[in-house]
């Protein structure tokens, strides 16, 4: 688990600053960038996964039962899923903090 940048000391760095924990960027949550969040209407959803396929942030997961849901820890709120959904079952709602 990487520490915050400002806590790193010289001795903590690998030679050449190599990062040997693949994919550790997941600790960085981009979810707080969003000003709106996608919400699914499961009545209309045909479980096709178009939303999942077009998400630039891998922030859409498949739930049990085959419906999709955003991983709000990462979802940046771009709105691509809502725009691309074939049945238009996703709406972007304002993020309330």
């Amino acid at each position: 688990m990487p520490k915050p940048m400002e806590e790193y000391r010289v001795e903590d760095l690998n030679p050449g600053c190599v990062i040997d924990e693949p994919g550790n960027a997941v600790v960085y949550h981009t979810g707080n960038w969003k000003s709106q969040r996608p919400v699914w209407n499961e009545q209309k959803c045909i479980k096709c996964g178009v939303c999942w396929n077009f998400c630039p942030d891998n922030a859409i997961m498949r739930k049990e039962g085959g419906y999709f849901v955003a991983d709000y820890e990462y979802c940046k709120g771009c709105g691509i899923c809502a725009h691309e959904c074939i049945t238009q079952c996703i709406t972007m709602v304002e993020e309330v903090v």
Partner: peptide
């Protein structure tokens, strides 16, 4: 054993 080489550094680091 995947590693990342040549990451960039912010002023903090």
């Amino acid at each position: 054993r995947p590693v990342t080489m040549g990451a960039f550094a912010m002023p903090e680091l």
